[in-house]
Amino acid sequence: MRSKSRPSSSAKALIFISLFIAGTAPAWASETSDANHLANRDKLVHTLLYDSSAARKVELSGNEAAIAKRAEAIKVFEAASKHEYAELREEQYNRAVALLYEAASLATSSADSDDKIRRDLDNRQQSLDALLDAHERIMEEKHSSDLHAALLEEIAADRLAADALLAEGKAAAARVHVDRAYVAAKLSVERARKGETLLRELKFDTPEDEYKYELDRNDTHRMLLKVLLDDKMKNERIREGVNVHVAKSDELREKAILFAGNKEFESAIETLEKSTKELVMAIRSAGIYIPG
């Protein structure tokens, strides 16, 4: 008969496991963490060198120097993977990454840069046009159309110069003139509207427009349910309370859609308003106050 004070063989095994874990856990955890980090880094650098957009860009560029640089990066990476020491491996991974960046930089053709300059110029030109349209409307509203004419005169030389340079394919030089005209327009709009407050009233041309607005407002509150209550819905009590209101809201929305289908927009609007109110109550029932 075994003494009560002696642990059983299964208990001995548990002691052994327990001591083993307790004694080795910090070292084990640290080594595993390093190993995981390196394995992860190995995978990421591999992706960067073989499958990334930068790697494809180098491959497709036909630029010999860039392709050679990427090949060098791959060589460094392959050698790094075989290194026994983590620090050396890490260092070589960094070198491989740096080499790929150099390759990508070499592969960036002047055509790419030209495209960007042209895109930026087009965007700035569109902004200038939008500002000039706004400026014209503002000056009309203020009975100062002469100020719009003055602005157009002020920027005329720059706009002409920009067009001429662009016709010669000199987008970067054209941009300087477009920028100058843009700043002039911006300053003039700023002076005209400084300190003002404009009111955008809520007006609907037809009941159908108002119905569409209500439908959108209802959609919005449904999205808010997700955004605001995602975490809270894990609580059963809250979820049940919320779902009661959501079910009512769903029912009302269905009715509203039927009303709208019969062109009864006034009833549809009223029913949708009630549906949205239920959603507001659902959100509030979870402890979040939103006006509605």
Binding site: V183, K186, L187, V189, E190, R193, K194, G195, E196, T197, L198, L199, R200, E201, L202, Y213, E214, R217, E273, T276, I290, P291, G292
Partner: peptide
């Protein structure tokens, strides 16, 4: 920076400000 001091108020439906 050219700072533009203009407020735009957009009305919305319901009691929402």
């Amino acid at each position: 920076a050219i700072v533009f001091d203009l407020n735009i108020i957009r009305e919305v439906k319901g009691s929402m400000p």
